[in-house]
Simulated scan of single mutants.
Amino acid sequence: MMMLLVVVVASALAPSDVVVMMNGLPGKMGIEVADACARRGMSLAEVALTGKEESAPIEVASTTVKLVEAGTPEAEEAMASVVASCDELGKTLVAIDYTVPEAAVPNAELYARHGVSFVMGTTGGDRAALERSVLDGHHCAVIAPNMAKQIVALQAAIDYAATEFPGAFKGYKLDVIESHQSTKLDTSGTAKAIVSALVSLVDEAPDAAAATDAIAAISRVRDAPTQLEGAGGRLQRVPETALSGHAYHTYGLTSADDSVRFELRHNVNGRRVYAEGTADAALFLARRLAQRQEETPAAGKKKRLFDMIDVLKSGELA
């Protein structure tokens, strides 16, 4: 008698099982990310954290989202309500944060209090405090200064070169200029990270102040006339249609006698590339959470703090 053996294999968490709390609406980046998550099949929570100046509900990704001021008792209640709703429906909740630098740490502490895992796209906050909020909690997070996976892959290549070939550009002068929309208040986190690696290519044993000084020397462009004309040739000219949302970076390495110059540029118009990477990060995080629920507890601590390199290595990209 032949017996049929049926093997049931647990499938990966479906995007439809993921609910995203899109904090930072009605900001342009928040809207772009909400749309990207919807395109991937994830749904939006019907409430989101916002700043003091916003209060009216917003229609985004076919969902009416109530906006609640962050840092208020109402925000605590809203977070608890979203958590309870997802638990009842058997959905996996992930918060995505594109608020403002001063709200990043308080929001991260809110997520910790409610055990909500999050993707932090807000830059300019206290990175050490953000990481502590996760490591001292029981949830997970993807924290990265840049969610564009292509730029992150490029950054990883530069990090590799800095590690494997320190001092390869010894004696060269480093100059960096970055241009973003006028509403971006801080220096680009991506520029800071890439500069930190380039410093090691210029000096095989840089002292602690070298990276700090190089970051402080980054030229930051936020005015439209300079962006439109290309900052005197230091940047590619920004199209007028992209003034409200772009990221143009030029990293230059020039020999001491000015006879040799290398340039690395990455120019982004619009926000979609960051939004798509953020959606990847949210789904990556949700699937890690689902995995943890299925796994038998093992000795030792499991990784809970991730970056976009982890997302890239996972292969779970759109």
Rank of each mutant, 00 (worst) to 15 (best):
A231K: 03
V273E: 09
R113D: 08
A80E: 07
V94I: 15
V60G: 03
V94E: 02
A128V: 09
N107I: 13
G121S: 06
A247N: 11
E131G: 08
I96K: 09
D136R: 13
A299H: 10
F306I: 01
A242V: 04
E54K: 10
A247L: 12
K192E: 13
D310W: 05
A48C: 03
G124C: 01
E46G: 15
Q293M: 09
A95R: 08
A128D: 11
D97K: 09
G315N: 02
N269M: 14
L198I: 06
V202Y: 03
S244F: 10
V260P: 15
I215C: 07
K173F: 06
A128W: 05
Y274I: 08
Y248I: 02
V119K: 02
E88A: 15
V7A: 12
Y160H: 09
R288H: 07
D310I: 04
H246L: 06
T50G: 01
S81F: 07
T183M: 12
L305A: 00
R40K: 09
L174C: 02
R261D: 03
D17Q: 14
H249I: 15
G51I: 09
E229R: 11
I58W: 01
V195T: 12
P297L: 04
Y172Q: 02
T212L: 14
R272D: 11
K28P: 08
V9L: 13
A112F: 04
A279E: 02
R127I: 09
Q293D: 12
L174V: 01
D175K: 13
A211G: 06
M22P: 10
R222V: 15
A56L: 10
H246V: 05
D126P: 04
A34T: 04
A209W: 06
K313W: 06
V268W: 05
A36Q: 06
V221F: 04
Q227P: 05
E316M: 13
I96Q: 14
A281Y: 00
V9N: 12
D213E: 14
A129T: 01
M1F: 13
V311H: 00
D213N: 13
P57K: 01
K301R: 11
H138G: 15
L110C: 06
A256N: 06
E294R: 15
A191M: 08
G232I: 01
L289F: 02
E229S: 08
Q227I: 06
Q291M: 09
A45V: 01
E131L: 07
E32Y: 08
E54M: 13
T296L: 13
V199F: 03
K170V: 07
A214C: 04
S85E: 11
V33C: 03
Q150N: 14
G270R: 03
P239H: 02
V94L: 00
R287E: 05
R261G: 05
D87E: 12
G230A: 04
E69L: 15
G24E: 01
L228N: 01
C140A: 11
A205Q: 12
I215K: 12
A205V: 12
R265G: 05
A275N: 02
E53C: 10
A156L: 11
V202Q: 10
S182Q: 11
S16C: 07
D159M: 10
I218N: 02
L67T: 00
D258G: 06
P26V: 02
H246A: 03
A103K: 09
L243D: 00
A298I: 05
G171T: 00
K302N: 10
A157Y: 06
D213H: 08
